[in-house]
Nucleic acid binder design. Structure first.
Lengths: 407, 407
DNA sequence: CAAACTTGTTAAATAATTAAAAAAGTTTTC
DNA sequence: GAAAACTTTTTTAATTATTTAACAAGTTTG
C-alpha cells in the first residue's frame, strides 16, 4: 500500500523545510492539490506532531491565514562541504540549524583510499556524538570539487574508486544511510536558490568565487547539471589570448585571469617588487590566512588589494558577459568565499558588461552579492538531501531498515 | 464544467501530434495517467474520429500493442517563417504535412507598419485559399529574427509597434486566431527537438547557421528562453580579439569570424584577388543565389570554398567549446540553411574542440548535422502552436467563438 | 512448452475535486 | 465612521475522477 496520501504528506514536509511559515493555501498551490485535501493532510501532520501551527500571517485582503512550520526534530541530515584543503561536517535539523558545532578536518583529496575512509569514519562519528538516534537521519549530502556524475555518484577528479565504483554506494553501504554528492558550486547555487539571493528566481547564475572560479546554474527554477553532470565549467572557458598555460592543459582559460589564487599570487609578486600595501607577504604563503588577510585588506580600503580584486572582477565580468548572452538570466549572484569582499566586485563587473555585452541583454539583469558566504556549501549539502527526499521516503516505506545497495 | 477528461484528451491529441504511432501504454506513461483511464479516453477519441488505430507495433516481449495516430484533418495551423529578406507562409495539418504549397513573400522587416499589415493580409489569404473552415484552425505560429519576448509577444528588434504594443495581440485581433511568436533559432531548435536530430534528447544545443549564427537551447528536455526570452545570443559572445567592429556596436563578436554572410564576403574578396574557384563573383552579389552557389561549390569539392567553410567551422567550434564548458550538452546539432553544406562542418568543429575544450567534457558530446534543413523553421513554427495547445483548447472551451483580446 | 512479461478488459474501491456557504478580514463609499 | 462590497481563508457535503486489483489475452525467452 503505497498510499498517495503519504507521498503528498512527504511533499508537504519537504516544502516546509525549504520554506517556513507557509499557509494551507500556499501549500495547496505548491503541491498542486486541492485545498480540502491539503488541509486534511496538514491536520494529520499536526496531529502526528510533525508540523506545528505558527500563528496567523498578515492578511492579503481577506481572512488571515494560519501558517505552519515543520518541527525541527522530525528528522536530521549530515551535511559535508569539502574543498581541496578542508572538509567540514555538520548535523543539520529541519529548520536548517546546526545541531552541534561544525567538525573541521584536513583531508587531501588526492589520496583517495585513505581520505575516503577518514571521511566515512568522521561522518559516523558526527552521527554518534550528535546523540540523535540513527533512524532520525534521512541522508548525507556531500559537496566536493571535481567532475561529478550526480546520478552514478562518481567524482572523476578526486576520490575516485577503481573500476568507476560509485562512492555514494560505497559510503551508503558503510554508513547505512543514503548518500548524495554534487559539485561544490552546484550546491552553493542550490543554497542560494532555496535560502539565499536566488530564492524564487527562475533563472540565475551563481558564481562561486573561491580558489578557482565555479558556476552553478539555476535554469527554469531548478539546478541545471547537464548531460553527465559536468555543467558550469566556467573557469575553463577559453576567453583570453594571453598564452598562459592553465593546469587543465589549455591556454587562456578564464581561471588564468581571475581567482583568489591568482589574486594571492599577484599580491605576493607586487609586494616583492616593492608595492606598498597593508598585506604581509609572509602570511600570504598559507592559503587560509592569505584569504583572511586579503578580505581584511579590501575592507580596510587597501588600494593595492582593491586594484587586484578589481582586475579579477573585470575578468569575471567578461565571463559573465558570455553567460548573459547565452542564457539571459534574471540574476547574477556572487557567492563562495570570495563574496566576503562585498560590493568591491560590482563596479568592475558592471564595467565589463558595459563593454562586452549588448545593452538590451544586461539592462534587466541584477548583480547581487550573497550573504550566505562561507556557509553556503554546507547549507546546499543539506538541501541536496531534502531535494531527494521523495526517493528517500519511498525507500523507507519499501524496505524495513533501508536497502542500501540501491543507493 | 471544465471536465478534466477533456484536458487529458487534448493532451493525448498533442502528444500524438508530436509523435505518431504511440501505444496506449506509451501514452499513459507520457500523460502520467493510469492505463485504464488512458484507454477509455483513447476509445472515446477514436469514436469521435479524432484518432485512428494504426495497427500493431512489434512486441517488446509480450502482447503486441495497438498503436494510434491523430487524424490529419482534425485541426490545422498556419506556420510562418521569416528572415531578413523572405517570409514563408504555410498551412500545416496534424501530421505535419503542408496542405498546399508554401507562400513566399518579400518583406522588409524594418518597415514595421506596412510589413505587418502585408503579413496579416497574406496569412488571412493563406487561410482563405486553403479551403479549410476557419474553426478548424487552432492558431498561427511565427518565427522571426530579433530579440523577442515570447510571453508579451513583442519583437524589440523588428516589427515593433509603438508603445511596446504586443504584435501577437494585434495580429490575433485582426485575424481572429491565437498568434504565437518566437525567435527563429529557437523554433529551429524546437523543430529539431520534436521532429529532428534532437528528438528525445534532454540537453542539446542547436546551432542555426544562417546569414548570422543563432542558437536554440534545449535544456532539461524543453526549449530554454531565459528571463526575458533573449537566451541564445550566440553570435555576439565576445570571443575574438580581432578588433573588428560588429554591427551590434561591440568588437570581436563570434559573428565577425563566422557566418554565411562572412563566407560570402570572403569569397568575393578572394576571387577578386585572383583565387581560382568554381564560384562566380557576379551571382554572389545576390543573397539567395550566393547561398545556392556556395553550397553547390562545397558539394562539388571546390577547394577555395571548402577552405572558407572550414575556417568558419573552426570558429563556430570555438564558440561550441564555450557552450560545452558551460552546459555539458548531449548533442550539438548544426541546423539552419548552412547545414546543407553537410559533413564539411564536422572536422573543423571537432578540431576546435580538441584545442579549446577539456577532453572529459566533449568526449561524450555528439555533433550532428540536421536533415530538416530549410524546412526546420516552418516545422518549428507549427510545433510552437501545438506547444501552446493546452491554453488554446482551454480558451476554446471558455469562450464561444474565441475571446481574442486575451491573446 | 512453461515461465515471464507486456498489453488489454472490467468492476469495485478509493481518492480527490468541485461547489456552495460560512467565517474573518480589508477596502470602498457615502 | 459605519455599512456595503469585496477578498481571502476555512468548512462541509456531494460529485466525479482515477486508481487498484484481478483476470484474460497475446509474445518472447530459455
Amino acid at each position: 500500500m503505497t498510499e498517495k496520501r503519504t507521498v503528498c504528506k512527504n511533499d508537504i514536509l519537504k516544502q516546509l523545510y525549504f520554506q517556513e511559515n507557509l499557509s494551507c493555501v500556499d501549500l495547496s498551490i505548491i503541491i498542486e492539490k486541492s485545498f480540502p485535501l491539503t488541509q486534511k493532510l496538514i491536520e494529520e501532520l499536526v496531529a502526528d506532531n510533525l508540523v506545528t501551527e505558527t500563528g496567523y500571517a498578515v492578511s492579503s485582503g481577506g481572512r488571515r491565514p494560519l501558517t505552519y512550520a515543520i518541527q525541527r526534530n522530525v528528522m536530521y541530515m549530515v551535511a559535508v562541504a569539502m574543498d581541496q584543503f578542508v572538509t567540514k561536517i555538520a548535523v543539520i535539523d529541519m529548520q536548517n540549524h546546526l545541531v552541534s558545532s561544525v567538525t573541521r578536518i584536513f583531508l587531501s583529496l588526492t589520496e583517495t583510499r585513505s581520505a575516503l575512509q577518514v571521511l566515512i569514519d568522521k561522518i559516523a562519528g558526527a552521527i554518534d556524538t550528535s546523540g540523535i538516534p540513527k533512524e532520525k537521519f534521512i541522508g548525507i549530502g556531500i559537496g566536493m570539487p571535481g567532475f561529478i556524475d550526480v546520478k552514478k555518484g562518481i567524482n572523476y577528479s578526486f576520490l575516485s574508486l577503481p573500476d568507476n565504483e560509485s562512492i555514494t554506494k560505497h559510503m551508503a553501504f558503510q554508513l547505512g544511510l543514503p548518500v548524495f554528492i554534487d559539485n561544490d558550486s552546484s550546491l552553493i547555487a542550490l543554497a542560494e536558490l532555496r535560502f539565499g539571493a536566488a530564492k524564487g528566481a527562475r533563472n540565475a547564475m551563481v558564481i562561486n568565487i573561491g580558489w578557482g572560479v565555479g558556476l552553478g546554474l539555476i535554469l527554469n527554477g531548478a539546478l541545471y547539471r547537464g548531460h553527465e553532470g559536468f555543467a558550469g565549467e566556467f573557469s575553463h572557458i577559453p576567453l583570453f589570448l594571453n598564452g598562459k598555460l592553465c593546469w587543465c592543459g589549455k591556454a587562456g582559460c578564464l581561471e588564468t585571469e581571475t581567482s583568489l589564487l591568482l589574486i594571492k599570487e599577484r599580491a605576493i609578486e607586487g609586494i616583492n617588487s616593492g608595492r606598498v600595501s597593508r598585506l604581509n607577504t609572509l602570511s600570504l604563503e598559507n592559503h587560509e590566512t592569505a584569504y583572511q588577510e586579503l578580505i581584511k585588506a579590501v575592507q580596510e580600503g587597501d588600494q593595492f588589494t582593491i586594484e587586484l580584486f578589481s582586475k579579477a572582477g573585470y575578468n569575471i565580468g567578461k565571463g559573465v558577459a558570455v553567460l548573459i548572452h547565452l542564457l539571459n538570466p534574471q540574476k547574477i549572484i556572487l557567492s563562495g568565499r570570495g563574496s566576503a569582499a562585498g560590493k568591491i566586485w560590482e563596479a568592475p563587473i558592471q564595467q565589463a558588461l558595459n563593454e562586452h555585452c549588448i545593452r538590451r541583454l544586461f539592462q534587466n539583469t541584477n548583480i547581487e552579492i550573497s550573504d550566505l558566504g562561507l556557509e553556503a556549501q554546507l547549507i546546499g549539502a543539506a538541501a541536496l538531501v531534502m531535494e531527494n527526499y521523495n526517493e528517500i521516503s519511498f525507500l523507507k516505506e519499501e524496505t524495513t531498515g533501508f536497502e542500501l545497495s540501491q543507493l
